[in-house]
Design a protein around this nucleic acid. Structure first.
Lengths: 151, 151
DNA sequence: ATAGAGAATGAGATTCATTCTCATTTTACA
DNA sequence: TGTAAAATGAGAATGAATCTCATTCTCTAT
């Protein structure tokens, strides 16, 4: 399949090989693309499918994937690291912004259009050249906002 | 002193009392206002001053301070939580943005002026009401940018 | 295709930040 | 001032993530 060719290319050009375990983890990420899974969740899902993999290997794989730009490591302050696929890992893709609902805990992904202005501003005021950024917004999603209004 | 009156007020109105330990921690935060200290760093600094305090108490205190809005808990991806004083914890103060230098590791604090546009945008597109946000910018500070240019 | 070198795996041990427990001390208020 | 409730601190416990090392797999040169 096409996407696994891209995976292999990306791994090989960074000096890694495409093993069955790395392929399984990648497939799991694709099939749960909006899930922000933890290493342990990936491990459990693969085990349920009777795919033999060790938890250490999942952690190692996520570390490699993140280092070579296949995934982003994200943190929603619940004590575990989570991972999401980088949208288009051949080019310079934008990192997601996360809208974290304080009501129901759901996490929505949002893209950033206005960040460019902010980056220019930071460069001017601080002489700081931004390479990447992580933006988390805490608030109330549409559903929870409605529920709040009723009370 | 004036600021400790504010500390007491804030604690009492949330149902806590002002103990000597909480006062010591607060003083330490004031004196290292730009330091983004970990609980353990606070513990060590206080111990060096021969102020008797337990590490658990520091953790508990930071948890309370953060819950009632005296401090913000910040995370620079080094495996430890760090804390910074909220600028003006009687009013609605802006949270800091952090400029994290990938070269030297230094962390600068920046305020947000342009975030309001971004918040409006998120409200329109996602019906998501933002209460708070956390923004981390990774890049190169003025010094490290210069060094890079030379190479 | 095959051998051999180096990379990858996995089970379990280890680490380390943080939280919990509970006996003791301190604080607030009647 | 006495007492109930809150806070403290030493050490135990927790749990995510990393490390170890013997075994297995992958890739390349022949």
């Amino acid at each position: 399949m096409n996407s696994n060719l891209t995976l292999k290319k990306k791994l090989v050009e960074s000096g890694y090989s495409l093993t069955s375990q790395r392929e399984e983890v990648y497939t799991e990420l694709i099939e749960n693309a909006s899930a922000h899974m933890t290493a342990e969740e990936i491990f459990i899902k693969l085990s349920q499918r009777h795919l033999r993999i060790g938890l250490s290997t999942v952690y190692r794989t996520m570390s490699i994937f993140t280092n070579i730009g296949i995934t982003d490591k994200v943190d929603f302050d619940d004590g575990m690291s989570r991972y999401e696929l980088v949208e288009d890992f051949s080019g310079n893709s934008h990192r997601h912004h996360h809208l974290i609902c304080l009501g129901c805990g759901r996490v929505e992904d949002a893209f950033d259009d206005l960040m460019e202005d902010l980056e220019k501003d930071v460069l001017e005021k601080f002489s700081f050249n931004i390479i990447d950024h992580s933006v988390k917004m805490y608030g109330y999603c549409a559903d929870c906002s409605k529920k709040q209004d009723k009370n």
